[in-house]
């Protein structure tokens, strides 16, 4: 990946609302990236389905998310230029980036910035501006 390139991709995801206890105890598919958005809500990236962790859980295949894949250098620059909060050393962080609600997943070799599809075009424009 070029150092400051932005790769945009749709995500297969499943969102689950359930009791916090059930979410704490749940075991998700091995290839899923788990984002605990709230005590009662989790977003599983890169899976198409998941078992309900409790009888009344809402398991929702969610196509409304977009992922931007950046190099660590680009991710660092985005945070310096467009986020008032520090990125996590590793794993999930949530907050506004360039004024848009976003999730960041800091991996060793790349950073993922995940936003809702309805805001993805604006987000991409702002990322490009920050990285220019």
């Amino acid at each position: 990946m070029a150092e400051f390139a932005v790769v945009r991709e749709r995500i297969a995801a499943v969102r689950i609302a359930a009791t916090p206890t059930a979410l704490d105890a749940a075991r998700w598919p091995a290839d899923a990236t788990e984002l605990r958005l709230a005590p009662d809500e989790v977003l599983l990236l890169d899976v198409l389905d998941a078992a309900a962790p409790e009888p009344h859980a809402i398991v929702f295949p969610d196509t409304g998310w977009v992922r931007f894949v950046l190099s660590p250098a680009a991710g660092t620059r985005v945070f310096e230029g467009a986020a008032t909060w520090p990125p996590p050393a590793h794993g999930l962080g949530q907050g506004a980036i360039a004024g848009i609600p976003a999730k960041v997943i800091v991996n060793t070799d790349c950073w993922w910035l995940v936003v809702q599809g309805v805001l993805a075009d604006d987000f991409e424009d702002r990322l490009v501006e920050v990285l220019a």
Partner: peptide, 29 residues
């Protein structure tokens, strides 16, 4: 470092624009 609020676009936004629709911000979208 400030950004104006981003206005959400529906899943059909690009199709509306391609069809020549006049787009406006209404009801927060």
């Amino acid at each position: 470092g400030r950004h104006h609020p981003a206005v959400p676009r529906t899943s059909l936004h690009a199709i509306h624009e391609a069809a020549g629709a006049t787009m406006d911000r209404l009801g927060g979208w």
